[in-house]
């Protein structure tokens, strides 16, 4: 009985992955290029401007940006499927649960990120030579950032009523979480009064953890602990808000 339930849930999760990524990429291969473009273009600019000096930090930044892009993508994809195609309404009236739909959509965004993650992993192996511990820290931070961005994307998708509005949120999230904060470069490059503003974004803390682990940034043990506490706490808060505020069966 339990196996049957698990298989059913797995099929429901896979349905979202098919609709939102596999079939989309199969029918529109240009989507693959699109997923590579944003993280790689900023990385290329950073590398050119620093004459190669920031390639390591840039690769680390692109990893975080790829995870943030998942949440941004989820937000506009969910909104598009809900408001323009009414797919979500059809799914609500089916045996699929909100959790399975959400997990499926989240995984579908990760599938989109696979090509860029493969390219970045190859680049990391060539230019960063990370140790096992450094790799594990990077994966842990990326996982937290991924959960954070997916929860944020899910929350925004439930409050948007049309695709134009969702594009507005996309721009804001993207700029606030990955372009302005020191993800692709070190926080020490920001002059001091402005440095504190960067700490408004949780991605700053995520980047600090990875940058210090890879030896690009020197921070105290206390600051490192604070960084972990902040990103975990923020992620849990956003996740709880997303689950509580999002509506499956409307009231």
């Amino acid at each position: 009985m339990r196996t049957m339930m698990n298989r059913k849930s797995l099929n429901q999760i896979m349905a979202s992955v098919l609709v939102n990524s596999i079939y989309a990429m199969k029918n529109y291969p240009i989507m693959l290029i699109n997923t590579l473009l944003a993280p790689l273009s900023i990385l290329v600019i950073i590398v050119f401007i620093s004459r190669g000096a920031l390639i390591g930090v840039g690769i680390e930044g692109a990893f975080i940006m790829a995870m943030i892009s998942s949440g941004i993508g989820l937000q506009s994809d969910l909104s598009h499927l809900k408001n323009d195609f009414k797919l979500q309404d059809m799914v609500v009236s089916s045996p699929t649960s909100a959790v399975n739909y959400m997990v499926g959509m989240g995984v579908s965004e990760l599938v989109y990120a696979i090509p860029i993650l493969v390219i970045l992993s190859i680049m990391a192996a060539i230019f960063l030579h990370p140790t096992l511990i450094q790799t594990l820290i990077l994966i842990a931070v990326m996982t937290i950032v991924y959960i954070f961005s997916i929860a944020l994307g899910f929350f925004f998708s439930t409050v948007t009523t049309d695709v134009m509005q969702s594009w507005g949120f996309t721009g804001i999230i993207s700029t606030l979480l990955s372009t302005i904060p020191p993800v692709y470069y070190l926080i020490t490059y920001i002059p001091l009064p402005f440095r504190y503003i960067a700490y408004i974004s949780p991605t700053t803390y995520a980047a600090e953890i990875v940058q210090s682990s890879l030896g690009f940034l020197s921070i105290t043990q206390t600051n490192l602990i604070i960084d972990w506490i902040v990103i975990i706490t923020v992620t849990v808060i956003v996740l709880v808000i997303a689950i509580k505020k999002s509506m499956w069966r409307e009231v």
């Binding site: 298989r7 059913k8 849930s9 099929n11 429901q12 896979m14 349905a15 979202s16 098919l18 609709v19 079939y23 989309a24 029918n27 529109y28 499927l81 195609f85 797919l87 059809m90 799914v91 089916s94 045996p95 699929t96 739909y101």
Partner: peptide, 19 residues
């Protein structure tokens, strides 16, 4: 019907949503 899917893909994915 979702633009980027075919009729078959539309029905297949919906059936999978039903488990």
């Amino acid at each position: 019907a979702v633009h980027w899917l075919t009729p078959k893909q539309t029905v297949v994915s919906y059936l999978m949503y039903r488990g």
